[in-house]
Amino acid sequence: MIETQSLSKTYGRGEYALQNLNLKVDKGEFAFLTGPSGAGKSTLLRLLLLEERPSEGEVIVGGRNLSTLDRDEVQAYRRTVGFVFQDFKLIPTKTIFENVAFVLRVLGQPIEQQRRATYQALKWVGLQHRLNALPEELSGGEQQRVAIARALVNDPHLVLADEPTGNLDPDLSLEIMNLFRDMNARGTTVLVATHDRDLIKWVGRRVIQLEQGQLVGSGEPTP
């Protein structure tokens, strides 16, 4: 599903955020991206979301080389990818139903379809009773569940999550991870960046270890 070839990203005076990274994530896999702060986890996710372009090397997702995509193709590609961030990135002026339906709305889907899919996504994360609440009326865990509902409402092939439990307590973190596991069980490829070793051990999936922008390990979590 995801393949990087000699991928490097430099900032400023040529400092490497990622350096000569070669990795693969298979279709339908659930993998963790881990490492200390500054290891390059978020940079890799930004490159996968095409928020930034590589300095060198290639990023291939679903068989498509992302560096060849033009502006409109980038948008079309992003429609196939769900994302979840540490700070939730919800629109504060919209209700949670509108936040989730928004994805389908801007993709021009019929209203009935928007309503049905949005309700199902919010029901799946257990928030069907808070449809008209504003984000500020929800707890951090609930807000992250809304973000997860938004990420999957469009039925993406790939979901990327950047420290999705960074602002949550351990119980809520496990709850969120369960949602990712369920999502993965439905066939979606999931890549979660986190430095929470306990969480990684608890979920027990492949770990891609980065340090100073380089791949230093890949495999099952160590007990």
């Binding site: 409109d72 196939t80 994302f83 801007v106 938004r150």
Partner: peptide
């Protein structure tokens, strides 16, 4: 701006943005 950033990330066509 937050809304626009999210619109871009979810792949909204530029006509919508």
């Amino acid at each position: 701006r937050d809304e626009l950033e999210i619109m871009k990330l979810v792949g909204a066509p530029f006509s919508y943005i």
